[in-house]
Design a protein around this nucleic acid. Sequence first.
DNA 1: AAAGTATATAAGCATATAGTTATATACTTA
DNA 2: TAAGTATATAACTATATGCTTATATACTTT
Lengths: 115, 115
Amino acid sequence: MLRINSEYTLEISKDLEELFKALSNINRLTLVYILATGEMERVSVTEMAKKMGLTQPAASQHLKILKTANILNAKKQGNYIYYTFNHKALINHKEKIDFLFGCVFTKCDKRQKEE
Amino acid sequence: MLRINSEYTLEISKDLEELFKALSNINRLTLVYILATGEMERVSVTEMAKKMGLTQPAASQHLKILKTANILNAKKQGNYIYYTFNHKALINHKEKIDFLFGCVFTKCDKRQKEE
DNA sequence: AAAGTATATAAGCATATAGTTATATACTTA
DNA sequence: TAAGTATATAACTATATGCTTATATACTTT
């Protein structure tokens, strides 16, 4: 369970900053949606490029950002590199988001009560 | 309840893009944390500037972004403008985030089962 | 081994972001 | 009303982001 603590909070902020940055681009966000809701359960660089109407290098760069932010995993298989969700890390990310919003809503509720 | 639908999904993506963009800056993210976990339940431009070590215009610009993204509300009171959480909109934001992660985890679980 | 395919990276460019200083506007108080 | 305080905005600058093209590397297939 995540607890409030100024040092810890700072660390969470840093993590969330990177996570939000990675997800704040429409191409990367859409890719995540496609991966999450479509039939594909993995995507290669070329596939992403085609699907999103991007050049191969552009797709490569986007996938690198998603991998660095621990949103996707990369697994080389022959000629291809397949990107899949980093389940474990995503659970962690979600916990941090829930913690942040939990704090926000606690404050909102408290404020409402005091009125 | 949010449902999968390509048109709707696109709309959510746009919303989430703006939300994540607003939260992908360390100063704005930290301010949200401070507001959520500290004693303050509202913040003025000057207070934010002081707390974050920013100039007044910088703080003003950050708060404008958080307001535009429907994370904060602004309420003028005399000389000051007090920014507070936009509770209703934040609930909406959180729903969209939960929907996105819900789809992701559903896909992750499905993949795990099939192995 | 040579050719083909997939990916990564380097270099460059256009635009976006985050800050600055200067200044205008709105409100309060002496 | 004049002075002081809070905020917003304009104009500018430096850096970051997202793309491009060119090219290198890794693997597969003929």
